[in-house]
Design a protein around this nucleic acid. Structure first.
Lengths: 179, 179
DNA sequence: TATTGTTATACTCTATAACTATA
DNA sequence: TATAGTTATAGAGTATAACAATA
Protein backbone atom coordinates (compact mmCIF):
# COMPACT_ATOMS: atom_id res chain seq x y z
CA UNK A 1 0.00 0.00 0.00
CA UNK A 2 1.36 3.42 -0.93
CA UNK A 3 1.61 6.52 1.22
CA UNK A 4 -1.69 8.45 1.20
CA UNK A 5 -1.39 10.90 -1.66
CA UNK A 6 -3.57 13.99 -2.03
CA UNK A 7 -5.53 14.01 -5.26
CA UNK A 8 -4.57 16.69 -7.74
CA UNK A 9 -6.30 17.74 -10.90
CA UNK A 10 -4.56 19.26 -13.90
CA UNK A 11 -7.26 21.82 -14.65
CA UNK A 12 -8.61 22.71 -11.25
CA UNK A 13 -9.99 26.28 -11.36
CA UNK A 14 -8.79 26.96 -7.85
CA UNK A 15 -5.55 25.76 -6.29
CA UNK A 16 -6.19 22.56 -4.37
CA UNK A 17 -4.14 22.82 -1.25
CA UNK A 18 -4.61 19.88 1.07
CA UNK A 19 -3.38 19.68 4.63
CA UNK A 20 0.34 19.38 5.23
CA UNK A 21 1.10 15.68 5.10
CA UNK A 22 3.28 13.83 7.59
CA UNK A 23 6.85 13.47 6.43
CA UNK A 24 8.12 9.94 5.97
CA UNK A 25 8.28 8.43 9.43
CA UNK A 26 11.25 6.21 10.45
CA UNK A 27 8.81 3.93 12.27
CA UNK A 28 5.94 3.88 9.73
CA UNK A 29 2.51 4.40 11.26
CA UNK A 30 -0.05 2.53 9.21
CA UNK A 31 -2.95 4.75 10.24
CA UNK A 32 -1.35 8.13 9.48
CA UNK A 33 -2.22 11.33 11.29
CA UNK A 34 -5.61 12.58 12.33
CA UNK A 35 -7.28 15.28 10.22
CA UNK A 36 -7.52 18.56 12.11
CA UNK A 37 -9.13 20.97 9.67
CA UNK A 38 -11.19 19.48 6.84
CA UNK A 39 -10.16 20.73 3.41
CA UNK A 40 -13.30 21.41 1.35
CA UNK A 41 -11.63 23.58 -1.30
CA UNK A 42 -12.45 21.37 -4.26
CA UNK A 43 -16.14 20.95 -3.45
CA UNK A 44 -16.40 24.69 -2.94
CA UNK A 45 -15.49 25.23 -6.60
CA UNK A 46 -18.59 23.31 -7.73
CA UNK A 47 -21.75 25.31 -8.32
CA UNK A 48 -23.90 22.21 -7.93
CA UNK A 49 -22.48 21.47 -4.49
CA UNK A 50 -22.79 25.05 -3.30
CA UNK A 51 -26.29 25.52 -4.70
CA UNK A 52 -27.46 22.33 -3.03
CA UNK A 53 -25.96 23.27 0.33
CA UNK A 54 -27.44 26.77 0.15
CA UNK A 55 -30.88 25.47 -0.83
CA UNK A 56 -30.87 22.95 2.03
CA UNK A 57 -29.85 25.67 4.47
CA UNK A 58 -32.79 27.87 3.51
CA UNK A 59 -35.21 24.95 3.45
CA UNK A 60 -34.09 24.06 6.96
CA UNK A 61 -35.45 27.44 8.06
CA UNK A 62 -38.46 27.22 5.77
CA UNK A 63 -39.84 23.94 7.10
CA UNK A 64 -40.30 24.81 10.78
CA UNK A 65 -41.61 28.31 10.06
CA UNK A 66 -44.13 27.07 7.50
CA UNK A 67 -45.27 24.27 9.79
CA UNK A 68 -47.71 26.75 11.37
CA UNK A 69 -49.52 26.78 8.02
CA UNK A 70 -49.10 23.07 7.43
CA UNK A 71 -47.28 23.84 4.19
CA UNK A 72 -44.18 22.03 3.01
CA UNK A 73 -41.96 23.63 0.36
CA UNK A 74 -43.63 22.17 -2.72
CA UNK A 75 -47.10 22.68 -1.26
CA UNK A 76 -46.23 26.34 -0.77
CA UNK A 77 -45.11 26.61 -4.39
CA UNK A 78 -48.29 24.93 -5.61
CA UNK A 79 -50.52 27.18 -3.52
CA UNK A 80 -48.61 30.24 -4.69
CA UNK A 81 -48.97 29.36 -8.35
CA UNK A 82 -52.69 28.65 -8.00
CA UNK A 83 -53.16 31.94 -6.16
CA UNK A 84 -51.42 33.90 -8.90
CA UNK A 85 -52.90 31.82 -11.72
CA UNK A 86 -56.55 31.03 -10.95
CA UNK A 87 -57.72 28.19 -13.15
CA UNK A 88 -54.26 26.66 -13.65
CA UNK A 89 -54.34 22.92 -14.37
CA UNK A 90 -52.40 20.14 -12.70
CA UNK A 91 -50.51 19.62 -15.94
CA UNK A 92 -49.40 23.26 -15.96
CA UNK A 93 -48.30 23.04 -12.34
CA UNK A 94 -46.22 19.96 -13.11
CA UNK A 95 -44.57 21.60 -16.11
CA UNK A 96 -43.82 24.80 -14.21
CA UNK A 97 -42.46 23.21 -11.04
CA UNK A 98 -40.90 20.14 -12.68
CA UNK A 99 -43.09 17.71 -10.75
CA UNK A 100 -44.30 14.28 -11.79
CA UNK A 101 -48.10 14.22 -12.17
CA UNK A 102 -48.62 11.24 -9.84
CA UNK A 103 -46.85 13.11 -7.06
CA UNK A 104 -49.15 16.08 -7.39
CA UNK A 105 -52.38 14.14 -7.07
CA UNK A 106 -52.12 13.49 -3.34
CA UNK A 107 -50.94 17.03 -2.68
CA UNK A 108 -53.92 18.57 -4.47
CA UNK A 109 -56.23 16.14 -2.72
CA UNK A 110 -54.86 17.12 0.68
CA UNK A 111 -55.09 20.86 0.03
CA UNK A 112 -58.61 20.39 -1.29
CA UNK A 113 -59.63 18.40 1.80
CA UNK A 114 -58.31 21.27 3.93
CA UNK A 115 -60.58 23.61 1.95
CA UNK A 116 -57.65 25.70 0.71
CA UNK A 117 -58.41 25.10 -2.96
CA UNK A 118 -61.13 23.72 -5.16
CA UNK A 119 -61.36 22.15 -8.58
CA UNK A 120 -63.69 23.58 -11.22
CA UNK A 121 -64.53 22.47 -14.71
CA UNK A 122 -62.00 23.58 -17.27
CA UNK A 123 -63.64 26.01 -19.69
CA UNK A 124 -62.51 24.26 -22.87
CA UNK A 125 -61.01 20.84 -22.02
CA UNK A 126 -63.21 18.36 -20.26
CA UNK A 127 -60.25 16.18 -19.35
CA UNK A 128 -58.69 18.94 -17.27
CA UNK A 129 -59.73 20.80 -14.14
CA UNK A 130 -59.04 24.42 -13.25
CA UNK A 131 -57.62 24.91 -9.77
CA UNK A 132 -58.74 27.87 -7.66
CA UNK A 133 -58.02 29.01 -4.13
CA UNK A 134 -60.88 29.32 -1.70
CA UNK A 135 -61.13 32.52 0.35
CA UNK A 136 -59.53 30.58 3.19
CA UNK A 137 -56.77 29.50 0.82
CA UNK A 138 -56.13 33.06 -0.29
CA UNK A 139 -55.94 34.25 3.29
CA UNK A 140 -53.60 31.42 4.22
CA UNK A 141 -51.43 32.10 1.18
CA UNK A 142 -51.09 35.80 1.96
CA UNK A 143 -49.79 35.01 5.42
CA UNK A 144 -47.55 32.24 4.14
CA UNK A 145 -46.04 34.49 1.48
CA UNK A 146 -45.27 37.20 4.01
CA UNK A 147 -43.65 34.55 6.20
CA UNK A 148 -41.64 33.21 3.26
CA UNK A 149 -40.27 36.64 2.41
CA UNK A 150 -39.29 37.30 6.00
CA UNK A 151 -37.67 33.94 6.63
CA UNK A 152 -35.56 34.16 3.50
CA UNK A 153 -33.94 37.33 4.77
CA UNK A 154 -33.47 35.75 8.18
CA UNK A 155 -31.93 32.65 6.60
CA UNK A 156 -29.48 34.70 4.51
CA UNK A 157 -28.40 37.45 6.91
CA UNK A 158 -25.02 38.01 5.27
CA UNK A 159 -26.45 38.92 1.88
CA UNK A 160 -26.98 42.58 1.03
CA UNK A 161 -30.09 43.60 -0.96
CA UNK A 162 -27.92 44.02 -4.04
CA UNK A 163 -26.36 40.60 -3.55
CA UNK A 164 -29.83 39.08 -3.31
CA UNK A 165 -30.82 40.56 -6.65
CA UNK A 166 -27.58 39.36 -8.24
CA UNK A 167 -27.98 35.88 -6.79
CA UNK A 168 -31.57 35.56 -8.00
CA UNK A 169 -30.54 36.59 -11.49
CA UNK A 170 -27.67 34.10 -11.68
CA UNK A 171 -29.71 31.21 -10.28
CA UNK A 172 -32.49 31.84 -12.79
CA UNK A 173 -29.94 31.70 -15.58
CA UNK A 174 -29.22 28.11 -14.56
CA UNK A 175 -32.69 26.62 -14.48
CA UNK A 176 -34.32 28.87 -17.11
CA UNK A 177 -32.09 28.10 -20.08
CA UNK A 178 -34.22 29.99 -22.59
CA UNK A 179 -34.78 33.35 -20.93
CA UNK B 1 -67.99 32.18 -3.87
CA UNK B 2 -66.13 35.36 -4.79
CA UNK B 3 -64.46 36.22 -8.07
CA UNK B 4 -60.94 34.75 -8.22
CA UNK B 5 -58.65 37.43 -6.86
CA UNK B 6 -54.89 37.53 -7.40
CA UNK B 7 -52.96 37.53 -4.15
CA UNK B 8 -51.04 40.69 -3.38
CA UNK B 9 -48.50 41.33 -0.68
CA UNK B 10 -47.83 44.73 0.86
CA UNK B 11 -44.06 44.35 0.98
CA UNK B 12 -43.23 42.32 -2.07
CA UNK B 13 -39.69 43.17 -3.22
CA UNK B 14 -40.66 42.87 -6.86
CA UNK B 15 -43.93 43.96 -8.41
CA UNK B 16 -46.31 41.02 -8.55
CA UNK B 17 -48.13 41.34 -11.82
CA UNK B 18 -50.51 38.46 -12.41
CA UNK B 19 -52.23 37.69 -15.67
CA UNK B 20 -54.96 40.04 -16.85
CA UNK B 21 -58.14 38.79 -15.22
CA UNK B 22 -61.48 38.37 -16.98
CA UNK B 23 -63.77 41.34 -16.46
CA UNK B 24 -67.07 40.61 -14.73
CA UNK B 25 -69.07 38.51 -17.15
CA UNK B 26 -72.79 39.26 -17.69
CA UNK B 27 -73.43 35.50 -17.83
CA UNK B 28 -71.12 34.31 -14.99
CA UNK B 29 -68.91 31.37 -15.94
CA UNK B 30 -68.24 29.32 -12.86
CA UNK B 31 -64.98 27.87 -14.15
CA UNK B 32 -63.32 31.12 -15.25
CA UNK B 33 -60.83 31.36 -18.08
CA UNK B 34 -57.96 29.06 -18.88
CA UNK B 35 -54.44 30.14 -17.85
CA UNK B 36 -52.30 30.81 -20.90
CA UNK B 37 -48.94 31.91 -19.49
CA UNK B 38 -48.12 30.83 -15.93
CA UNK B 39 -47.12 33.72 -13.70
CA UNK B 40 -44.15 32.66 -11.54
CA UNK B 41 -43.05 36.15 -10.54
CA UNK B 42 -43.51 35.71 -6.81
CA UNK B 43 -41.63 32.42 -6.55
CA UNK B 44 -38.81 33.94 -8.58
CA UNK B 45 -38.24 36.49 -5.83
CA UNK B 46 -37.41 33.71 -3.33
CA UNK B 47 -33.78 32.66 -3.03
CA UNK B 48 -34.77 29.31 -1.55
CA UNK B 49 -36.95 28.48 -4.55
CA UNK B 50 -34.37 29.57 -7.10
CA UNK B 51 -31.48 27.84 -5.32
CA UNK B 52 -33.43 24.60 -5.15
CA UNK B 53 -34.43 24.75 -8.81
CA UNK B 54 -30.85 25.53 -9.87
CA UNK B 55 -29.40 22.76 -7.72
CA UNK B 56 -31.87 20.21 -9.11
CA UNK B 57 -31.03 21.31 -12.65
CA UNK B 58 -27.32 20.70 -12.15
CA UNK B 59 -27.91 17.42 -10.31
CA UNK B 60 -30.03 16.25 -13.23
CA UNK B 61 -26.89 16.53 -15.37
CA UNK B 62 -24.62 15.19 -12.64
CA UNK B 63 -26.44 11.90 -12.07
CA UNK B 64 -26.29 10.40 -15.59
CA UNK B 65 -22.72 11.57 -16.19
CA UNK B 66 -21.47 10.19 -12.89
CA UNK B 67 -23.26 6.90 -13.42
CA UNK B 68 -20.22 5.69 -15.36
CA UNK B 69 -18.31 5.83 -12.05
CA UNK B 70 -21.20 4.50 -10.00
CA UNK B 71 -21.10 7.66 -7.90
CA UNK B 72 -24.18 9.52 -6.74
CA UNK B 73 -23.88 13.14 -5.60
CA UNK B 74 -23.23 12.51 -1.92
CA UNK B 75 -20.93 9.59 -2.67
CA UNK B 76 -18.90 11.89 -4.87
CA UNK B 77 -18.66 14.45 -2.08
CA UNK B 78 -17.60 11.77 0.41
CA UNK B 79 -14.94 10.37 -1.90
CA UNK B 80 -13.65 13.87 -2.62
CA UNK B 81 -13.31 14.75 1.04
CA UNK B 82 -11.55 11.50 1.84
CA UNK B 83 -9.19 12.02 -1.09
CA UNK B 84 -8.29 15.51 0.07
CA UNK B 85 -8.28 14.59 3.76
CA UNK B 86 -6.68 11.17 4.24
CA UNK B 87 -7.60 9.81 7.66
CA UNK B 88 -10.82 11.79 7.99
CA UNK B 89 -13.39 10.14 10.25
CA UNK B 90 -17.05 9.39 9.59
CA UNK B 91 -17.94 11.93 12.24
CA UNK B 92 -15.98 14.64 10.43
CA UNK B 93 -17.59 13.75 7.13
CA UNK B 94 -21.04 14.04 8.68
CA UNK B 95 -20.26 17.40 10.24
CA UNK B 96 -18.77 18.79 7.03
CA UNK B 97 -21.48 17.57 4.66
CA UNK B 98 -24.41 17.86 7.09
CA UNK B 99 -25.20 14.15 6.92
CA UNK B 100 -26.75 11.94 9.58
CA UNK B 101 -24.29 9.28 10.76
CA UNK B 102 -26.65 6.34 10.11
CA UNK B 103 -26.98 7.41 6.49
CA UNK B 104 -23.24 7.39 5.99
CA UNK B 105 -22.68 3.85 7.25
CA UNK B 106 -24.07 2.06 4.23
CA UNK B 107 -22.36 4.47 1.84
CA UNK B 108 -18.94 3.86 3.39
CA UNK B 109 -19.63 0.14 3.42
CA UNK B 110 -20.49 0.17 -0.27
CA UNK B 111 -17.44 2.21 -1.29
CA UNK B 112 -15.26 -0.07 0.84
CA UNK B 113 -16.73 -3.18 -0.78
CA UNK B 114 -15.91 -1.67 -4.18
CA UNK B 115 -12.30 -1.29 -2.96
CA UNK B 116 -12.37 2.50 -3.43
CA UNK B 117 -11.57 3.24 0.21
CA UNK B 118 -10.38 1.49 3.34
CA UNK B 119 -10.67 2.01 7.07
CA UNK B 120 -7.58 2.18 9.24
CA UNK B 121 -7.15 2.52 12.98
CA UNK B 122 -7.41 6.07 14.19
CA UNK B 123 -4.04 7.17 15.63
CA UNK B 124 -5.44 8.46 18.93
CA UNK B 125 -9.08 7.43 19.31
CA UNK B 126 -9.89 3.73 19.29
CA UNK B 127 -13.59 4.43 18.80
CA UNK B 128 -12.95 6.13 15.48
CA UNK B 129 -11.56 4.96 12.15
CA UNK B 130 -9.51 6.92 9.66
CA UNK B 131 -10.77 6.72 6.08
CA UNK B 132 -8.31 6.49 3.19
CA UNK B 133 -8.67 6.06 -0.54
CA UNK B 134 -7.13 3.03 -2.18
CA UNK B 135 -5.03 3.61 -5.32
CA UNK B 136 -8.10 2.53 -7.30
CA UNK B 137 -10.15 5.05 -5.36
CA UNK B 138 -7.71 7.85 -6.08
CA UNK B 139 -7.70 7.03 -9.77
CA UNK B 140 -11.47 6.89 -9.84
CA UNK B 141 -11.72 10.17 -7.96
CA UNK B 142 -9.39 11.99 -10.33
CA UNK B 143 -11.53 11.04 -13.29
CA UNK B 144 -14.74 11.81 -11.43
CA UNK B 145 -13.50 15.24 -10.43
CA UNK B 146 -12.52 16.11 -13.98
CA UNK B 147 -15.98 14.97 -15.09
CA UNK B 148 -17.64 17.04 -12.37
CA UNK B 149 -15.81 20.19 -13.41
CA UNK B 150 -16.72 19.69 -17.05
CA UNK B 151 -20.37 18.86 -16.48
CA UNK B 152 -20.90 21.90 -14.29
CA UNK B 153 -19.89 24.18 -17.12
CA UNK B 154 -22.07 22.21 -19.53
CA UNK B 155 -25.00 22.44 -17.11
CA UNK B 156 -24.63 26.22 -16.71
CA UNK B 157 -23.81 27.39 -20.24
CA UNK B 158 -25.22 30.89 -19.77
CA UNK B 159 -22.90 31.80 -16.89
CA UNK B 160 -19.69 33.67 -17.64
CA UNK B 161 -16.52 32.79 -15.68
CA UNK B 162 -16.96 35.95 -13.64
CA UNK B 163 -20.58 35.11 -12.91
CA UNK B 164 -19.51 31.66 -11.71
CA UNK B 165 -17.09 33.17 -9.22
CA UNK B 166 -19.70 35.61 -8.01
CA UNK B 167 -22.32 32.88 -7.67
CA UNK B 168 -20.00 30.60 -5.70
CA UNK B 169 -19.16 33.43 -3.32
CA UNK B 170 -22.80 34.32 -2.67
CA UNK B 171 -23.90 30.73 -2.21
CA UNK B 172 -21.13 30.10 0.31
CA UNK B 173 -22.28 33.14 2.28
CA UNK B 174 -25.59 31.37 2.78
CA UNK B 175 -24.50 28.00 4.10
CA UNK B 176 -21.22 29.11 5.77
CA UNK B 177 -22.60 31.64 8.25
CA UNK B 178 -19.29 32.16 10.05
CA UNK B 179 -16.81 32.76 7.22
C1' DT C 1 -52.87 8.72 -31.67
C1' DA C 2 -51.85 11.95 -27.89
C1' DT C 3 -52.95 14.11 -23.50
C1' DT C 4 -55.10 14.83 -18.56
C1' DG C 5 -55.65 12.98 -14.46
C1' DT C 6 -55.29 8.96 -11.72
C1' DT C 7 -53.82 4.48 -9.15
C1' DA C 8 -50.49 1.49 -7.63
C1' DT C 9 -45.98 0.80 -6.59
C1' DA C 10 -41.03 0.96 -6.00
C1' DC C 11 -36.92 3.25 -5.11
C1' DT C 12 -34.07 6.85 -3.06
C1' DC C 13 -33.19 10.11 0.47
C1' DT C 14 -33.40 11.55 5.07
C1' DA C 15 -34.42 11.36 10.12
C1' DT C 16 -34.90 9.18 14.88
C1' DA C 17 -34.25 5.83 18.64
C1' DA C 18 -31.43 2.75 20.72
C1' DC C 19 -27.35 0.03 21.19
C1' DT C 20 -21.71 -0.98 21.81
C1' DA C 21 -17.40 0.33 22.61
C1' DT C 22 -14.45 3.79 24.00
C1' DA C 23 -13.21 8.62 25.77
C1' DT D 1 -21.27 11.42 31.18
C1' DA D 2 -20.28 12.15 26.36
C1' DT D 3 -18.85 10.62 21.79
C1' DA D 4 -17.91 7.38 17.39
C1' DG D 5 -19.87 4.10 14.93
C1' DT D 6 -23.65 1.08 14.15
C1' DT D 7 -28.44 -1.19 13.55
C1' DA D 8 -33.15 -1.04 12.66
C1' DT D 9 -36.78 1.46 11.07
C1' DA D 10 -39.93 5.02 9.62
C1' DG D 11 -41.09 8.82 6.87
C1' DA D 12 -40.68 12.02 2.99
C1' DG D 13 -39.55 12.68 -1.71
C1' DT D 14 -39.38 11.09 -6.32
C1' DA D 15 -39.86 7.90 -10.29
C1' DT D 16 -42.17 4.54 -13.67
C1' DA D 17 -46.01 1.68 -15.61
C1' DA D 18 -50.55 1.31 -16.70
C1' DC D 19 -55.29 2.75 -16.97
C1' DA D 20 -59.92 5.63 -18.15
C1' DA D 21 -61.75 9.68 -20.14
C1' DT D 22 -61.25 13.02 -23.51
C1' DA D 23 -58.75 15.67 -27.25
Amino acid sequence: MTEPRPVRLPDSPLPITPQAQPEADPAPVAAGLAVERVDTSFLETLIGYNARRAALTIIATFIPRMAQFGLRPVEFSVLTLIGHNPGITARQLCATLDLQPPNLVGMIKGLEKRSLLEKRDHPSDRRAQGLHLTPAGESQLEQAQATALALEVDATPRLTPLERVTLLRLLRKIYQPDH
